[in-house]
Amino acid sequence: MCGIAGVMYKGDGVEADVGKALIAMLDGCQHRGPDSTGFALYHDAEPGELRLRFFVGEKEQAETTIAEIQDKLAEFQAELVKEERIGSTYAIIIRFTGDIQKLAYAMEHAAKLVSIGESLDIIKDLGGAFDVDDVYHVRDFTGSHGIGHVRLATESDVAPEASHPFWATGFADVSIVHNGQITNYYKLRRRLEKRGFEFNTANDSELVAVYLADKLSQGIPLKEALGTSIDDLDGTFSFLVSTKDEIGYAKDRLAAKPMVKFENDDLIAIASEEVSLNRLFPGHALNTSEPSPGTFDTWQRST
């Protein structure tokens, strides 16, 4: 139960205030989810480098977890380029050329892995958009695109790791924010688990991410994967998915969850409610549209 938002700025090599835009949009729909807030941000990729972020907790527990993470990195011959401890997380950049899925699963067994990617960095924690920004300085992030989420926990816990966005466990650079409820969750999860995929949480949004990332890894274009998701997923949903270069959405056939989009020469923005879009253009009446039930679309980053 939540609110979602995403923005993609147009133009080659654009360095827009994506962080500030997402903070404003998420604050605009914070009433939909006061428990936690999260951002999936896409940095410029450096060849051969990967970004990882973990929840490590506090004090001694954090020390132990970080040591375990570093052992694991050594085991995979990953070279630590940069590290940072911030909030309850530990963020690193490593140089690594092996199988990302294997690395991801191994790291996940060692610690609570939030995200992995050449570009992707997921920042999420308890509290509102400004609370999370206070700790993680999301406002400083510039780039071309990102997605975000405010959460009202219903069935699962109020915990940082249960917050959105969700990373497609095992697949680099795929993230998702989702509003709704997938009712054939267990059926689809069993199907994917039989094929060797692992899941970090019992959250249905993670399933959507893994479902899409699996298709992408088979070479299926994102747009096509979104199309099949509408047939395969049962329940109510409006979700945004992001990769290094693309943002897409899908909306269920009953249109039970809201979504509004706006596009001009500079950007494309999508959110649960127009009030979030209007935060980017205070005092202006926007020419928005509502995606039809059972539809999907994607936008490519200009390169």
Partner: peptide, 27 residues
């Protein structure tokens, strides 16, 4: 003025007057 798609504008009004919202309103 400046409604900026905010929710609940005018809710509960039971009088015969004109309300002009100069922009977008929310829920």
């Amino acid at each position: 003025l400046n409604p900026d798609a905010k929710h609940h504008i005018g809710v509960g009004l039971v009088h015969d007057v004109n309300v002009h919202v100069r922009g977008s309103a929310g829920y």
